[in-house]
Computed example of a mutant assay.
Amino acid sequence: MVVWERPEPQERPTPAPLSRDRIVRAAMGLADADGLEAVSLRKVAAALGVGPMRLYGYIDTKDELLDLMVDAVYAEIRPEGDDWRAALRSVAETTRAAAHRHEWFADLLGGRAQLGPNSLAAGEAVASAMGGVELDTVVPAISAVNAYVIGAVRREVTERRTERATGVDQKQYQAAFGPYLRRVFATGRFPAVARFVHDGPHLDADQTFRAGLDFLLDGIAARLSD
């Protein structure tokens, strides 16, 4: 029986009452502060002020705990809108926002299918908004948006982690490599790249994400109009 269907143990009157939700929230707090490497059953139990053995019955393995953590984040992802474009845009933007609040979430996206109740509710909302579209289009369209979001948020989270680790932000990095690029471009070997750097739009992370999402949604709309 999967964890979402398995009943919780009967609550015992102790100084530190437990529930599956309390365990998940404690694990998320550890992960939010120090990443997934900070999450173990022993550390979660310590954060709750109980012995590790008390967690069993609520969860059997760390993998179950991670599944529950991911599904808890999906409760923050709320597809909205009466049409497919609004639904896909909102699920993309709220997924990105959730990954910014919980960076570890980006590390767990894109693996096995998420089948918890909150994940299924988000999927239901998107699928319902696309109810008038043929499944041959719906399935790859949703998969394409998911792939775009996963790639984008992982890149953004990686950049944020790199900046924290090095103390060098994007502008400082570009300034440090500016003289090198000017020398390389002066050789004339990379005219197309030089044009991109000199004349292309310099978008911030929000603008980059939304522009890429617009391109993708426009492509879906074009397919639907065929």
Rank of each mutant, 00 (worst) to 15 (best):
D32R: 07
V145Q: 00
V184H: 03
V197N: 10
S225T: 09
D71E: 04
I150Y: 05
W104M: 07
L66W: 00
I77S: 06
D218F: 00
A72S: 08
P201N: 01
T94V: 08
E103F: 08
Q174G: 07
N146L: 10
A31S: 05
Y74F: 13
Y180N: 04
P140N: 06
L217N: 02
A33F: 05
E163I: 02
V133I: 15
D67T: 00
L30R: 04
T94F: 04
Y173G: 11
T158F: 09
A46E: 13
D34Y: 15
E159N: 11
I77L: 13
I59M: 11
T61R: 10
E5P: 05
E93Y: 02
R22D: 12
A129T: 00
A46C: 02
R101S: 14
R160P: 01
Y58D: 06
R85E: 14
P9I: 07
L115D: 15
H102A: 14
S143C: 01
L41N: 09
P201Y: 04
I150K: 04
Q114K: 05
T208F: 12
V24K: 00
D169K: 05
A221G: 03
D169A: 04
D34W: 15
R96N: 03
P17F: 05
W104C: 11
R164I: 05
I220Q: 04
G51D: 10
G57Q: 00
M69N: 03
P117K: 06
R223K: 11
E103C: 06
A33R: 12
F190H: 14
D32K: 12
A165R: 07
E134A: 10
P140L: 04
L217T: 01
R160G: 03
E76T: 09
P7D: 10
S19K: 03
V70G: 11
A33P: 05
G51K: 04
A192R: 14
L41H: 07
L108G: 15
M69I: 02
T158M: 09
A16H: 14
R101Q: 15
E93Q: 13
M1F: 14
D214A: 03
R89L: 07
A87Q: 03
A141F: 03
V197Y: 08
A87I: 10
A205K: 02
E124P: 00
A127S: 08
L68M: 12
R89C: 12
R22A: 15
H100Y: 15
V73T: 06
R20Q: 14
P13S: 06
R161A: 15
L88I: 02
R155T: 13
E80N: 04
A122S: 13
Y180Q: 04
R155L: 13
R101L: 14
Y56V: 11
R12M: 11
T162N: 09
Y148I: 06
A38M: 02
L217I: 00
R112F: 15
E163N: 02
A192N: 11
R183T: 15
R96H: 08
V184S: 13
M130L: 11
L213R: 00
A165C: 06
W104V: 12
D136C: 00
E159Y: 06
R85D: 15
H100E: 15
L109H: 08
Q114L: 07
L66N: 01
P79L: 08
R183P: 14
E103N: 13
A205V: 09
E5D: 12
E37Y: 10
A152E: 04
A221E: 13
A98V: 10
P117G: 10
R195P: 10
A129Y: 01
R20T: 10
